[in-house]
């Protein structure tokens, strides 16, 4: 009886019923077109080449962190520590640029990967829900960043050349965009063409069955969170290089933004459905919204409210509720 019949179906579900059969990604694509149209009408500068580059720039960073986040979510978990990892990585990068030069990059990435690995270990071995694990570790990573430096760290001018890895151009294209493309390809291949990627989908879809089918669920879970750490680390070094600075709160907004990108793209929070390609579209939607609100001149403080409302609406439209009987 609880299934249906009590009261009318909510309007949103009736609309969804009409659109049923379309893959989850098409809602996100529709939204992308809609928002581009709204902002294009609202402002003459939105569609300019310069603004498109700005969007691309910020999208590349959000893409990296969201690509990692989606693996955590595909297992049915969540990574709330991506902000802390990004901040920590940015501080480590800025601190080590002078002594290490280029080698500051691999070191910073290694720090992020290790952070993700620890999340995975605690989550899988100690059997602590990822929500709690990463909520706690986010604070730890931020605190370590504070211990390294309370004040924002700036890049020493001697290292500007090294920062060109991110800020320079190659064949007329900004490196940060090329990095974005590389990151996407990397995570896309991992999800679609490796056994680990397939096992992450299996685990998210049905953990008990995966175990009975011989999947090493501890290993797979740990790898998923390590990948999330890698994504956050990449985003951290990209953003810090872009800003020529690092500080302990640099990544905070990316926690919400990365999760929103994944969900808007149509990946189910329960895991096992959606993925990297969906998230690419989700990232574009989020980047367009963030940029468009600036362009049409919405007050900076009001933007957070607009964003909150937009995310909820976007999720209402694109979220794959078919898997869930109850929304919590």
């Amino acid at each position: 009886m609880q299934k249906d019949g009590i009261g009318k179906q909510p309007a949103i579900r009736r609309i969804k019923g009409k659109l049923a059969g379309l893959p989850a990604i098409s809602y996100a694509l529709g939204m992308l077109v809609l928002f581009i149209a709204i902002f294009a009408v609202g402002s003459a500068t939105f569609l300019t080449r310069y603004n498109m580059l700005t969007i691309g720039n910020s999208a590349a960073i959000l893409l990296a962190v969201a690509m990692g986040q989606v693996f955590a979510i595909l297992t049915g978990g969540i990574d709330l520590s991506v902000g802390g990892i990004m901040s920590l990585v940015s501080v480590v990068l800025m601190k080590t640029l002078e002594p290490l030069g280029f080698w500051a990059y691999p070191l910073s990435l290694a720090v992020g990967i290790a952070a993700g690995f620890l999340n995975g270990l605690v989550n899988s071995r100690l059997r602590i829900p990822s929500f709690i694990t990463t909520l706690g570790s986010n604070g730890i990573f931020m605190s370590i960043a504070y211990m390294i430096s309370i004040k924002p760290l700036s890049a020493p001018s001697s290292s500007f050349g090294v920062l060109d890895i991110v800020n320079g151009t190659t064949l007329g294209i900004r490196n940060i965009m090329l990095l974005g493309v590389l990151v996407f390809v990397l995570f896309f291949v991992i999800q679609r063409y490796t056994i680990t990627g397939r096992n992450i989908m299996l685990l998210g879809s049905n953990e008990k069955m995966s175990w009975l089918s011989g999947v090493d669920i501890f290993k797979v879970r740990t790898i998923a969170f390590t990948l999330s750490g890698l994504g956050a680390a990449l985003a951290g070094v990209m953003l810090a290089s872009n800003l020529y600075s690092g500080y302990p709160t640099l990544g905070t907004v990316y926690i919400l933004n990365s999760i929103a990108s994944v969900v808007i793209g149509g990946t189910a929070m329960t895991g096992g459905a959606g993925g990297v390609l969906n998230t690419l579209v989700g990232v574009m939607v989020m980047s367009v919204i963030n940029n468009g609100m600036n362009i049409i001149g919405i007050d900076v403080y009001a933007q957070q409210s607009f964003l909150g409302v937009l995310v909820i609406i976007a999720v209402a439209i694109s979220f794959d509720r078919s898997k869930l009987s109850v929304i919590k």
Binding site: V189, R192, Y193, T194, I195, R198, M201, L202, S205, N206, M209, S210, L212, S213, G214, V215, G272, A273, K323
Partner: peptide, 26 residues
């Protein structure tokens, strides 16, 4: 027994992905 959200191919192949690789990738 099944991952009901995934497709038939995913379910049949899940135990033998290692045999379905070409140059390291599925």
């Amino acid at each position: 027994g099944l991952a009901t959200d995934l497709d038939i191919a995913d379910n049949i192949n899940m135990l033998v992905y290692k045999n379905l690789k070409v140059r390291g990738f599925i």
